[in-house]
């Protein structure tokens, strides 16, 4: 299905292989994400989901295969900062916020725009930037905590802040790794709402184990197993697939 190179795809992976000391974390993986799409990626532990994101964001170089963004940028040749400025934002599996900065400063650092050191020396946040920060704080429901150091946030709040930082970057494509790990059911439900809202204006790839969350997203699902794609379709379709059942139950 993905053999043919689609020019319209936002993210295009073809035949990507990554090995760590001979162990293939990704094995000839191919994947297509269309502009505006939200895609859920599921798969058992060690299936290669995080590694796939590492490849897309330039953290890990594939041994072979193609990774193309927006039909033109070859991501295997670019570094992290460059890929980020192309418009790919990432939320990590383990929340990594800037602990000693306040919530608001975390968002300010993530805010799309100024990145060069000499410009930041003299720049103050503009009115537009401040307005955008207020807006994001409202979306992630953290206006009250905005002046609190991120170190004092709860695990769930850190996840929220990370999603806010992702929004602040205003990327074309958001890669979200396990956003609801450690969240309560209510928080999980709200996260799904927020992601659906974000998906109105952004393309999203979200990795998650939590099936009720994936169901709440209601989008096309890709199942990874041992570094390759096992199945693709709606959640109901893939959960009916005997190979998927075996992978999940056979553990």
């Amino acid at each position: 299905m993905t053999e043919q190179r689609s020019t319209s795809a936002l993210l295009y992976l073809s035949g990507v292989t990554v090995s760590f000391d001979g162990f293939k974390a990704l094995n000839n993986l191919s994947l297509l994400v269309e502009p505006g799409e939200m895609r859920a990626i599921i798969g058992p532990n060690g299936a290669g989901k995080t590694t796939m994101m590492d490849v897309v964001t330039g953290k890990t170089r594939p041994d072979s295969g193609e990774v193309v963004f927006d039909g033109k940028s070859d991501l295997t040749k670019l570094d992290e900062a460059h890929i980020a400025t192309l418009g790919i934002g990432r939320k990590f599996q383990k929340p990594t916020v800037f602990e000693s900065h306040t919530v608001r400063d975390n968002l300010l650092l993530a805010l799309a725009g100024l990145r060069s050191w000499y410009k930041l020396l003299l720049a103050a946040p503009t009115r537009a930037e401040n307005a955008r920060l207020d807006e994001i704080l409202t979306i992630i429901r953290m206006t009250e905590q905005q002046h609190m150091p991120a170190a004092r946030l709860s695990h769930g709040q850190k996840q929220w802040l990370e999603i806010g930082m992702l929004l602040a970057q205003d990327p074309k494509l958001l890669l979200v790794d396990e956003p609801v790990a450690g969240m309560t059911d209510v928080e999980t439900e709200t996260t799904a709402q927020v992601l659906r809202e974000i998906n109105k204006t952004h393309s999203v790839v979200v990795v998650e184990h939590d099936m009720s969350f994936v169901r709440a997203l209601g989008v096309k699902v890709t199942v990874l197993h041992e570094g390759s794609m096992l199945a693709e379709g709606t959640l109901d379709q893939v959960s009916a697939d005997p190979r998927v059942v075996e992978v999940y139950l056979g553990r």
């Binding site: 964001t57 953290k59 980020a84 900065h101 650092l109 946040p125």
Partner: peptide, 25 residues
């Protein structure tokens, strides 16, 4: 205390995170 300084301490605390935000550390 400038925005540069905020970015600087962020580099200290989580360098690779800053790279993923698009900063040339």
């Amino acid at each position: 205390s400038s925005r540069f300084g905020k970015a600087l301490t962020a580099v200290r605390d989580a360098e690779s995170r800053m790279r993923f935000l698009g900063y040339r550390v």
